[in-house]
Amino acid sequence: MNEKAIELYGDELYAAWLERRTVAPLTEREPDISLEDAYRIALRFVDRRVQAGERIVGKKIGVTSKPVQDFLGVFQPDFGQLTSGMVFEDGATIDLGGLIQPKAEAELAFVLKEDLTGPGITAMDVIRATDYVVPCFEIVDSRITDWKIKIQDTVADNASCGVYVLGNTKGDPRKLDITLAGMVLEKNGELFSTGVGAAVQGSPANAVAWLANTLGELGIPFKAGEVILSGSQSALVPVTGGDALVCHVGGLGSCRVQFSGRSAV
């Protein structure tokens, strides 16, 4: 795709995000769109948010589990960029009015204390460069109508980033088995699903290493202080106003979030 088309689609997704509405899948309109085109569109989309006053605060890794990869017909994860307007604190109430068609996922978030510059990064480098890990919720959202996404659609849409909530129980990855730590997700006081770190690329550290290497190839900085949402360890949870979610990570702690209002769709 040429630069003009990339800009056009990036601007279209930015406008859809701003106005809380959806657009037709890009893959329906551009059957030949490549993954590289999609990442360039995402960069334009995020650039527009930064131009409007937000900062880049981290990254999210998506499509990390085998069932989701099988569903989208891919063999690797994808990523999106986190901006300062997406952040909520533990226990926050999120107004769904700011979102389009949200769903929640329970994850482990990493915060870096050193830059991770790929290529050549391994999981061992990830542990070394990690300041701490925390339980978190990612509220994914899609600017694509009815979540009818192929991999290029979700990548262009900044990996379906919505907002996220970080727990405040920080853990040292040297003292925690991040691969086998259990994930227990409760919705409105009832068990919703369980999972484990290994569901994410065998270990969340593998997903972060993949991200560092991918960013390195694309020349995108990955800096100390950034937050990385490492990939979903739970089933996708539909949320509506009044819902309360808690996730517990074995040996680490919990993260809580509530919802009010109504999403656009």
């Binding site: 085998k66 088995d177 691969t179 086998l180 730590a181 259990g182 994930m183 227990v184 068990l191 369980t194 999972g195 484990v196 770190g197 290994a198 569901a199 065998g202 517990h248 990570v249 074995g250 040996g251």
Partner: peptide, 27 residues
């Protein structure tokens, strides 16, 4: 231990085939 949040992975022939946490058993 926290017997509620223990993570579990079952591998068959080197491939992960089932996963969960202990709360799956009646909480």
């Amino acid at each position: 231990l926290d017997l509620r949040t223990l993570g579990v992975v079952m591998e068959k022939n080197g491939e992960m085939v089932a996963m969960g946490a202990s709360a799956a058993v009646l909480g």
